[in-house]
Design a protein around this nucleic acid. Sequence first.
DNA 1: GTTAGCACTCTCGATCACTGAGTGCTAAAT
DNA 2: ATTTAGCACTCAGTGATCGAGAGTGCTAAC
Lengths: 342, 342
Amino acid sequence: MLTERQLLLLQLLVNDYIISAEPVGSRSISKREDVHYSPATIRNDLADLEEMGYLEKTHLSSGRVPSEKGYRFYVDHLLSPEILSQNELGTIREAFRRKFSETDDLIHVTARVLSEFTNYTAIMLGPELLDMRLKHLELVKLSESQGVMIIVTDTGHVENRTVSFPELIKAEDVEKIINILNDKLNMVPLYQLQARLDTEVRAVLKKNIADYQRVMALLKDGLSISDPNRIFYSGKSNILEQPEFRDINKVIALLNVFESNDLVRELMDMPSGGLHIRIGRENKLNGIEDCSLITTTYSAGDDHLGTVAVIGPKRMAYPRVVTMIDLIAKLLTKSLSKEKSE
Amino acid sequence: MLTERQLLLLQLLVNDYIISAEPVGSRSISKREDVHYSPATIRNDLADLEEMGYLEKTHLSSGRVPSEKGYRFYVDHLLSPEILSQNELGTIREAFRRKFSETDDLIHVTARVLSEFTNYTAIMLGPELLDMRLKHLELVKLSESQGVMIIVTDTGHVENRTVSFPELIKAEDVEKIINILNDKLNMVPLYQLQARLDTEVRAVLKKNIADYQRVMALLKDGLSISDPNRIFYSGKSNILEQPEFRDINKVIALLNVFESNDLVRELMDMPSGGLHIRIGRENKLNGIEDCSLITTTYSAGDDHLGTVAVIGPKRMAYPRVVTMIDLIAKLLTKSLSKEKSE
DNA sequence: GTTAGCACTCTCGATCACTGAGTGCTAAAT
DNA sequence: ATTTAGCACTCAGTGATCGAGAGTGCTAAC
């Protein structure tokens, strides 16, 4: 168990280190106004904390730096969210007040605000596409042989894919097909589309459409939703201003992670909704051992949850980021639900 | 005027420097098998080339490095495109052979191939949205008050935006409106949509729809195309492996440029189609004084031109990149036109 | 339990000498 | 008239050395 004083010292040390990025020594802690222990006393406690694994030294006679265990303890027990100034709060609220013509737009703005107010990198992950339901289908012919299949989901998300038309299909037939589909597949979850095509649509098509087998092929093709949800970033270069990223190789490793959507999706995959903090190696992913990730979820109507995250160095301003990401996820949720029901 | 030997030396020196990234000395040039001049002779010529502004020294007694003027001369007069191995050619062709469900997909793959085979960063800029023509409009109601407006262009590009519905508008009315719009606005360039709404649609709506003023407001809103064309990147981290980017500040400057779509669009704006090479400061943009940019255009049917670019250090493997970007732009054009007319 | 004092460790920056690569210039060779 | 050999000179980079400064651990006194 940690003594009161040790708790205090750990907290002060982490706070200090977050700001300075330099190993913190006993003397500099003891100089603070709110501390009236001598350097020697502090040294003893720091030595204990180090022995217990909460602190580390960069070399034999340096000041201390929090270990991952230390950060973990800090965020679990010593973290008090930062209170934002009225000023900042106002600016952020203002950013969400304007009208957004596209959902993508709103997501972009959210990412930008988050990265600008934290000075780290913001990552936005849309809700799982496959969980959405079909609201409307449309098939537009572009030329004799090519067309676009458009899928609108219940959240207002729009997917599109190019399809090649069987030759000589008639315009009325296209209309008929679309009507059948919209009738039969309304509000079906996207991941079931393929299956329902066989069970519910095939028979009707057979009855109504001449060349129904080719049409089925076209539909199968057009309704294959493999496309994963999109990922947006903002402030990628912010993280580079952190002193821990003066080493180019770390930068390369990090940017490589960002370039792989799969990795990022894996990285942001959390066991439940709400706020999560992953520190350093707790992220099971090469290249970001020196980063911390804070995620939370936002909702895009009903139970469609998206994820918003901030990634920065382990030495992250946790109090501020926690407050910020929480606020911004709530504002985003509000904006999205307003769009739906206003 | 440059002598034969000077031309040769300039070419050899640039080629050498492109590979080694180190200042090139007279001795190392003279050691090549295809050169039989002594270091002293070469030194004299290099001194002349330097005097004429084609070469520079990093310090008084260092080897030479090409100046921007030197690179310019090199690409204008000494550049012979690299011939790709059958092997590489095959792999690249193969990548374009598979089926793409979305145009975006194809663009992504193009960017990836280009960055992987050049080891620099690829940038893809879609055709100007505003030049496209309206092929099909759709208005989908999501809830009582919200809907999605979908715009399909003649190239198969799909745009969408959320709109708020006037209360109590009837489903048949929505259908009527859409029919009118599709009738009146077919093949109108997107940049004219707003204007045509007033001149051609207003009167018809007035006759047919009860609450026509509110509907007009909705349409005005939904048809405002301000959204600029999208930009894709691939291999952002490749460029960081170049020794000239060991300085973090250059990296930050470059990534900042990448984060601003406006800047990148400005950067890639060329006076004409076809291949362009911009070296260093020829790019009028802070942050990329040390980069070269090679762009060319691809076509997405008719006269919709998009731009594809490779950005790397001034010391770029020009012969290879020129060959590569040319090949890939052609393959992309072919894939896009195949999609339309196959 | 807390603090003062002291010897010890390690980093960082400055200085210095040395090496190697490269140049410019002059005079000899072709 | 070119081309080349020879030589003195310049400069970046490396490694060794040194002192200052910050910090620690330990012991003994408060």
